[in-house]
Design a protein around this nucleic acid. Structure first.
Length: 723
DNA sequence: CTACCGGATTTTTTT
DNA sequence: AATCCGGTAG
């Protein structure tokens, strides 16, 4: 039986599927939740399902599939095309979908057609401007927390007005003022931040019935992947798009919810059945990815979470090697150990691309990078954002952004004296004053020859800059690479970079790579534009930069690793304070989410898994003493092979007391202790300060106290001593 | 207007 | 440790 469209072989779509997989693929109408455990063949199910829908009940263009990253979207699209479905299915991320729709329906959304997307850096910049506009001291109002507040507000779809209404207390009142100013600056600059993309789309869908109907008719079947990591705005968009037909298929795994800190609401997936009457739920619990031992270790870890829907993964795969736990003296030793292991594996015929190294924070990649470089092993770091953060790249992008969106004063200020053209503070101040006086944008003032006359000495220089912008302006309608190349050379940026070199990096080459990327875009999107390229570039994620064909070891954060798989996986920095990550400043860490994060990392491994921890780690230029992670205690100890990178230090991460007053294995999180005054308590965490170890202990009355282990009179209790 | 100095700040994770 | 910011000197 062939599909109705003829080109697709339906039988092939259903071949080699287990019963639950088949059910997920062939369920057509009504809400469907696929609870897909790690490695349970979810991608296969989703792609086949999308193809099945496009063959049996809809046209490809009527299917909308939303993924978490652009890379995942590209892969899914390619696989669907490989199944014989035409290219016109919409497969993208929430953010790119919203950007595209808001661009098309900009008028309804109250946006300029050429709005630009503000990234993290831009957002920080605007927050600082907003704080200044509110006449607050930036020292008392640091940008970071404010960004978080504004972001949360937007995730909850609170506009500045709505936020101000529900704000209570002094702090929130001020935040409301800053948020208002922030939004005002964005509006002036025709800028939209990441959260705006979602919030504006959700609000637009909620209030514009006509548009909602049109989109519902267009996207008759909607698939959302990684549903456990959707936030409230995304939830609203999803529901507004599927209200009438209810053809929503959500896939995900509550055990892999790792974005709570940015507003993801795990409740979205947990409440799916309550939210959707008659929802069909399919569970995929057979793992096809990992060895029995890897799966056992990961399952054992995640079982330690208390707030959890029970789920048991199983596999028919081979037993495999034991999961290893390696104790390293320090970060450098850890890097050397891993580089040595990888070099051995490569010598044995293992392709470098089989191997991945994961870490909790980007800073940890440095030691590994250094060691791999020394060992001559090719590697790539998933850090696309960092590339776009480079000065020369930002400079050139600022030119393009001004061409696309002249209202973007921030970019204009960036380039007006980059490269140096002797337009300094004084001149800029005069231009600003004139803009404020006449109510025009900075750009308009710069381009106004009459206004320039009044500048005095700076007049000529600004005149030449205006001339430059005028020459470049027509390039917005042409291909992206052309605009970049011309802006680069005509602005004098190129000349200023020639011969520049910093820390084994050549800025000129970076720009050339950027232009090469633009050329690729121009080839792939002949209908594209500079605006389109800029939009795509703004929405790139870290993993989007990794190249599967590079033949290199891959380094990335645990967050970026979501959805990927590698035969050989190393997780480094499995230490208290790092994984689970804790910072004194912000309250207690969400240990369950951290544990899920570790679980995500472990379940990426197909054949071999190694968890490393170091006893000393350099952070902010200071050497810290680290204790191995409490998560390691959740692993089945008889299944784990313990290795020691440094034979003289077999006590490993447990070497707590250098003064010899305390036994090495005795002082760990989770250990019960007795204190003369406070009674029985349990150690929450151990931190090292110089040579001393501080323990935070939670007591029965709920109080927490900190002690210096070497000096305190805490007594350790054996498990059988606890009544 | 640029160049340089010293102090503050940084790094949690990201679309 | 490395970078960024603001202030001051030239």
């Amino acid at each position: 039986m062939a599909g109705v469209r003829g080109e697709i072989d339906t039988e092939a779509l259903l071949a080699e599927l287990t019963e639950p997989q088949r059910q997920a693929v062939t369920h057509t109408d009504g809400p469907l939740l696929v609870l897909a455990g790690a490695g349970s063949g979810k991608t296969r199910v989703i792609t086949r399902r999308a193809a099945y829908l496009a063959s049996e009940v809809a046209r490809p263009r009527e299917v909308l599939a939303i993924t978490f990253t652009n890379k995942a979207a590209d892969e899914m699209r390619n696989r669907i095309v490989g199944l014989g479905v035409g290219r016109d299915m919409t497969v993208c991320t929430f953010h790119s979908l919203c950007a595209r729709l808001l661009r098309i329906h900009h008028e309804r959304a109250g946006l300029a057609p050429n709005f630009t997307i503000f990234d993290q850096d831009d957002r920080r910049n605007v927050v600082k401007q907003a704080v200044r506009a509110c006449e607050l001291d930036p020292k008392n109002w640091p940008a970071g927390p404010i960004e978080g507040r504004i972001s949360n507000a937007k995730n909850e779809m609170l506009t500045p007005e709505a936020f101000a209404e529900q704000a209570s207390g002094y702090y929130d009142g001020v935040i409301a003022r800053i948020y208002t100013a922030y939004q005002q600056i964005l509006a002036e600059q025709q800028g939209v931040d990441f959260d705006d993309l979602l919030m504006r789309m959700a609000l637009l869908l909620a209030e514009d019935d006509q548009l909602r109907d049109r989109l519902e008719d267009r996207y008759r079947y909607v698939l959302i992947d990684e549903y456990q990591d959707t936030n409230d705005a995304q939830y609203n968009i999803t529901h507004l798009l599927t209200e009438r037909r209810r053809n929503l298929c959500a896939t995900g795994d509550p055990d892999q919810s790792i974005y709570g800190w940015r507003g993801a609401n795990i409740g979205n997936i947990l409440r799916f059945e309550q939210d959707h009457e008659n929802a069909v739920v399919v569970r995929l619990e057979q793992n096809y990815r990992s060895t029995k031992r890897i799966l056992a270790a990961a399952s054992s870890l995640i079982a330690a979470n208390i707030h959890r829907k029970e789920k048991t993964l199983w596999t028919e795969n081979a037993e495999g090697r034991r999961v290893r736990q390696v104790d390293c003296p320090d970060g450098e030793g850890e890097g050397q150990f891993i580089a040595g292991e990888i070099a051995k594996a490569i010598a044995d015929g293992r392709p470098p691309s089989d191997v991945a190294v994961f870490y909790r924070i980007n800073a940890l990649s440095l030691d590994i990078e250094l060691a791999l470089r020394r060992a001559g092993i090719a590697y790539q770091v998933a850090r696309g954002q960092a590339f776009y953060g480079r000065k020369e790249i930002k400079d050139l992008l600022a030119y393009v952004r001004v061409l696309v969106n002249p209202a973007e004063t921030t970019s204009l200020r960036r380039i007006i004296n980059t490269p140096p053209r002797s337009i300094g503070k004084t001149t800029l101040g005069k231009l600003d004053a004139e803009a404020a006086r006449s109510g025009r944008s900075l750009y308009d003032v710069v381009m106004d020859s009459a206004a320039r006359e009044a500048l005095g000495r700076g007049s000529d220089k600004v005149g030449r800059f205006a001339e430059l912008l005028r020459t470049l302006q027509p390039l917005v309608v042409g291909p992206a690479a052309k605009a970049l190349t011309e802006a680069f050379s005509q602005s004098g940026l190129r000349a200023s970079l020639v011969g520049e070199e910093r820390a084994d990096e050549v800025p000129l080459e970076n720009v050339e790579n950027l232009i090469a990327e633009a050329e690729k875009y121009d080839r792939q999107q002949p209908e594209g534009s500079v605006i389109g390229w800029l939009e795509e570039t703004s929405l790139l994620s870290d993993v989007d930069s990794i190249d599967d064909t590079a033949g290199a070891v891959t380094l990335m954060t645990l967050h970026a690793a979501k959805g990927l798989e590698f035969p050989v996986v190393y997780i480094i920095g499995v230490e208290e304070g790092l994984l689970p990550f804790r910072r004194e400043a912000d309250g207690p860490a969400d240990v369950e989410e951290e544990r899920r994060l570790c679980f995500v990392g472990m379940t990426r491994a197909k054949e071999e898994l190694t968890l490393c921890h170091a006893r000393y780690r350099v952070r902010h230029g200071q050497t810290l003493r680290n204790v191995r992670s409490e998560f390691l205690r959740d692993l089945p100890s008889d299944e784990i092979e313990r290795c020691d990178d440094d034979p003289d230090a077999s006590d490993g991460g447990f070497a707590v007391a250098e003064r010899g007053t305390r036994g090495p294995e005795d002082w760990l999180p989770g250990v019960f202790v007795l204190h003369d005054e406070y009674g029985i308590g349990v150690i929450r965490s151990i931190r090292s300060w110089g040579a001393l170890n501080h323990a935070t202990v939670a007591f029965e009355d709920g109080e927490e106290h900190s002690f210096i282990l070497e000096y305190s009179d805490l007594t350790r209790l054996e498990p059988d001593e606890i009544g």
